[in-house]
Simulated assay, not measured.
Amino acid sequence: MISFDIAQYRFDLRAVAVAVRGDYVLLHRVETDTFWSLPGGRVEVGEEAAHAVVREMHEELGVATTVDGLLFAVENFFEGDGKPHHEIGFYFAVSLPDDSPVVDVKREHIGMESTHRLVFRWFRRQDLPELDLYPAFLRKALQEDHSGIRHFVQYG
């Protein structure tokens, strides 16, 4: 995975899935965390970011995902594990198969990442401003319809 320490920073290259069904968006969190984020993970060396999204969704939820296009390019600066992070993220619109249990917006779905249990839940886009969701720009950006690729820089 493309994640390394340089100077005082941890650098990560992340690929992110933006799954929307009607008025709902799929978020996830590590079961012990209190905050939510979009599903995804780090890109492997030699891997296209869109392929990383498909791989991560399959590894974590066992679901085949179709990448529909790039929505956001994000520069994210934050503190994590007592260290400043510099993350570059590619956020892709994705589609999930209609026959997958994951598309049930009324219930939680459980996945795994290594030894961490993940909770996936669909949230109404209009409720995102009240949610502990990171990066914080998503609280507004996911409520809007998009055409073209948007660039965001997030601090904190």
Results as ranks from 00 to 15, higher is better:
residue 50 A to K: 15
residue 152 F to A: 03
residue 25 V to T: 10
residue 56 E to M: 05
residue 13 L to G: 08
residue 68 D to Q: 12
residue 117 R to M: 06
residue 76 N to G: 05
residue 40 G to D: 08
residue 108 E to Q: 06
residue 115 T to K: 15
residue 112 M to C: 05
residue 42 R to K: 07
residue 23 D to L: 07
residue 140 K to C: 07
residue 38 L to R: 04
residue 43 V to G: 09
residue 105 V to M: 05
residue 12 D to Y: 09
residue 54 V to P: 03
residue 141 A to W: 07
residue 122 W to S: 00
residue 139 R to W: 11
residue 139 R to A: 12
residue 41 G to S: 06
residue 88 I to Y: 15
residue 147 S to W: 10
residue 94 V to E: 04
residue 84 P to Q: 07
residue 84 P to S: 08
residue 128 L to K: 04
residue 51 H to S: 15
residue 64 A to M: 14
residue 39 P to C: 02
residue 34 T to V: 06
residue 64 A to G: 11
residue 65 T to P: 00
residue 7 A to R: 11
residue 110 I to R: 14
residue 152 F to D: 03
residue 97 P to Q: 07
residue 11 F to E: 14
residue 125 R to L: 03
residue 134 Y to G: 04
residue 18 V to G: 03
residue 91 Y to M: 00
residue 40 G to V: 08
residue 76 N to H: 15
residue 37 S to P: 02
residue 114 S to F: 12
residue 137 F to N: 01
residue 97 P to Y: 04
residue 138 L to N: 06
residue 10 R to E: 10
residue 153 V to C: 12
residue 150 R to V: 01
residue 10 R to V: 11
residue 83 K to Y: 09
residue 31 E to H: 11
residue 45 V to C: 13
residue 63 V to F: 07
residue 130 E to L: 08
residue 3 S to V: 09
residue 4 F to S: 02
residue 12 D to M: 12
residue 118 L to N: 00
residue 12 D to S: 13
residue 66 T to N: 12
residue 56 E to A: 05
residue 152 F to R: 03
residue 25 V to I: 12
residue 5 D to H: 08
residue 52 A to I: 10
residue 151 H to N: 09
residue 44 E to V: 13
residue 63 V to L: 08
residue 17 A to L: 01
residue 90 F to L: 15
residue 53 V to C: 08
residue 45 V to N: 13
residue 91 Y to E: 01
residue 143 Q to D: 08
residue 131 L to P: 02
residue 58 H to W: 14
residue 126 Q to L: 11
residue 72 F to K: 10
residue 59 E to M: 06
residue 86 H to L: 15
residue 111 G to I: 01
residue 120 F to M: 10
residue 121 R to Q: 07
residue 131 L to N: 04
residue 81 D to V: 02
residue 153 V to L: 13
residue 64 A to W: 14
residue 13 L to K: 14
residue 154 Q to D: 15
residue 96 L to H: 11
residue 89 G to S: 15
residue 128 L to I: 03
residue 143 Q to W: 08
residue 122 W to I: 00
residue 79 E to F: 05
residue 38 L to G: 05
residue 24 Y to N: 14
residue 129 P to W: 06
residue 123 F to N: 04
residue 3 S to E: 14
residue 90 F to G: 12
residue 98 D to P: 05
residue 102 V to L: 15
residue 94 V to Q: 05
residue 40 G to R: 11
residue 18 V to D: 05
residue 36 W to S: 06
residue 117 R to W: 03
residue 44 E to Q: 15
residue 11 F to P: 08
residue 70 L to I: 06
residue 131 L to R: 11
residue 115 T to H: 13
residue 72 F to Q: 10
residue 155 Y to T: 13
residue 82 G to V: 00
residue 13 L to T: 13
residue 55 R to M: 04
residue 143 Q to M: 13
residue 60 E to I: 09
residue 93 A to Y: 02
residue 89 G to A: 15
residue 78 F to A: 00
residue 120 F to E: 09
residue 28 H to D: 03
residue 33 D to Y: 06
residue 151 H to K: 10
residue 87 E to S: 00
residue 147 S to M: 10
residue 33 D to E: 07
residue 73 A to D: 13
residue 113 E to I: 01
residue 120 F to S: 07
residue 66 T to G: 12
residue 47 E to S: 04
